[in-house]
Design a protein around this nucleic acid. Structure first.
Length: 293
DNA sequence: TGCCCCCTGCAG
DNA sequence: CTGCAGGGGGCA
């Protein structure tokens, strides 16, 4: 469910609350989510929180032995950090991921798959409704050679316009290509739709038919909407349900260009188009048929 | 390169 | 009840 801006928001939040904590207990519920020997995480310190594309990497260790906890939230994964005071009252709750009532319910919930408990009594929950997400423990030196990490393309910010043009050499639709994590990492359905609207490009067009100017513009707009997504803390649709929580209630949804705006007026000045919805590669695709060519 | 699959839950 | 959900892997 989360794309790069949502995962980056979660990363920044966890970085503030988790680094320096010591894991005292780990619980794995069910056998689908976690891969590795969970006992190896016991007594380790959280050293840092990193991100690779849409995956999080929590660096843990003790002395010279370091491990990486790879986490992919896929469509419905959530990370919820909860800290209570000595009276058992919520002191802090940091949430990120798929917007369900799990965010405001008592934990663990029926969707909790992994729990990490820390020395100070705080707990990190990995919840996942649809069981697509995964958590994997690997030695730190093996993180970069993990299959998922190894395949990832560059982040949009690191990509030159020449490199971007090269990855567009495909008969696939431009939208499908933008979302191909092996080619460029981090873009999902929301930001692909919105970046294409920004660049005035029809998402159904074949990637290889974009000219140099269009490709350059598109890369700029990808960076623009991702930056904006991060600035607004990602997109969530919890509609104020974050009351009393120091949460990750992002507000990018208030800035959607076309995503989920089917039937509404195109936001471009002097365009009288109405946003349409179609399916590309099995994913809902929103665009303005008037100004996106 | 397209399709189907992994799953659960919710809106229409 | 069907279709759809912000992801990605495997298959031919």
């Amino acid at each position: 469910m989360p794309e790069l801006p949502e995962v980056e928001t979660i990363r920044r939040q966890l970085d503030k609350v988790l680094v320096g904590s010591r894991i005292t207990q780990v619980e794995v519920l069910g056998n689908k989510t976690f891969e590795g020997d969970s006992k190896l995480m016991l007594d380790k310190l959280i050293l840092g929180i990193e991100r690779r594309g849409k995956a999080l990497v929590i660096k843990i260790g003790e002395k010279d032995v370091e491990w990486g906890i790879l986490i992919h939230l896929k469509m419905t994964g959530q990370l919820i950090y909860e800290k209570k005071n000595s009276k058992g009252k919520f002191e802090e709750r940091v949430v990120g991921g798929h917007p369900t009532k799990d965010f405001v319910s008592s934990l663990p919930s029926s969707h909790t798959r992994v729990m990490w408990k820390f020395e100070d009594g705080s707990v990190l929950y990995f919840n996942d409704q649809r069981l697509f997400g995964w958590v994997k423990l690997v030695k730190w030196e093996d993180v970069e050679s993990e299959k998922f990490i190894l395949r990832l393309g560059k982040e949009p910010w690191e990509m030159s316009k020449e490199e971007f043009r090269n990855i567009l050499n495909s008969t696939k639709s431009i939208k499908v290509r933008l979302m191909d994590q092996d080619k460029i990492a981090g873009i999902g359905n929301i930001y692909a739709n919105d970046a294409l609207w920004e660049a005035r490009i029809d998402p159904r067009r074949s990637a290889k038919l974009l000219n140099e100017k269009e490709a350059k513009c598109l890369l700029e707009r990808v960076v623009k909407v991702l930056d904006e997504g991060i600035k607004y803390g990602g997109a969530t649709a919890m509609d104020g349900k974050f009351v009393n929580l120091d949460g990750l209630g992002g507000t990018y949804q208030d800035h959607f260009r076309v995503y989920q705006r089917e039937g509404e007026e195109c936001l471009r000045e002097n365009c009288d188009g109405v946003v349409e919805k179609t399916m590309i590669g099995g994913r809902g695709t929103f665009y303005c048929p008037v100004c996106q060519k």
